[in-house]
Amino acid sequence: MRISLFIACYNDTLFPDTGKAVVRVLERLGHTVDFNPAQTCCGQMHWNTGYTREAVPIIRHFLEVYREAEVICIPSSSCVAMIRDHYPKAAEESGDAKFAEEVESLLPRVFEFSELLVRYLRVEDAGAAFAHKVTYHASCHSLRSLGLGDIPLRLLRNVRGLELLPLDDVDRCCGFGGTFAIKNADVSSAMLEDKIESVLKSGAEVCTAVDNSCLLHLFGGLHRRRLPVRTAHLAEILACTSEGAGQ
C-alpha cells in the first residue's frame, strides 16, 4: 500500500534517522512510502503556545499537502494529537465550511507510526532484532490523546533479543511540554530529574518512545549528566534486524 509520511518538522531537522527508520520498516513490510517535500509542520507549537491565529495557515498548508494521500503515517504522537484534538476546532472557529470538510476527510487517514502498524496494517511483529535492555516511556499524548495503550509494547515484545524493562510512573510527564521546557525551565528540569531517576532504576540501556520530543528532553538530561543510557525512537528499534541496523 502507498503510505504518505509526515515526518514532523523537528524530526525532519533533528532526527532524520527516525524518518529513515520509518521508511525502512514500512518498505520491509512491502509498502511504498511517499514523501511530499512541500510538508512543513502540523502547527502544534504555535497552537499550544497560544499563537492559534498563526497556526491556522500552517494547518491549512498541511491539509493542502495531504489532500490526496490515502494513509498518512506520523512518527510523532503529539502531532497526531494536534490534528485530532485541535484541527476540528480551528476549522470550526474559521467558520469556513470547506475547511471543516477537509479536516473531517483528513482525520480517518491519519495514523501515528505504531498505531498504523498495529491497528491499521495489523502487524505486531515487524521482524526486528535488537539485543538490548529497553524501557518504554509512554508520552502523554500517545497515552491520553491517542489512547495507544500497550500498542508500542506489543511491537517491542516481538523484537528478537530485546529485553523490555518496566518504567516506574510510566504515565507521568517527562516535563518537556514544548515551550513549557523554556518558559518554566526550573519546573521542567525538576520533572525531568524524576523521569531520569525512573529510567536509571529500570536498568535499561536504551529508553524508547513514540515521540522524539520527549526523547530530545530525556537525551538532554542524560547527556548533561554523562549517563550511559541511550535514547531511540521506536521506529529506530524496529528498523534493526539480525542482519544489522542499517539505514
Binding site: A181, I182, A185, E193, R224
Partner: peptide, 29 residues
C-alpha cells in the same frame, strides 16, 4: 551545552542535540 537568550532555559539543565548534517528531506531527495 549553552545557548543564549530564551533558549538558555533549555541548556540550564539539558544538552541539545545539534542539527545533523543532513535533514530527512535532504536525505530523501
Amino acid at each position: 551545552e549553552s545557548l543564549p537568550f530564551l533558549l538558555s532555559g533549555w541548556t540550564q539543565s539539558r544538552d541539545l542535540r545539534p542539527i545533523p548534517q543532513e535533514s530527512f528531506r535532504a536525505w530523501w531527495a
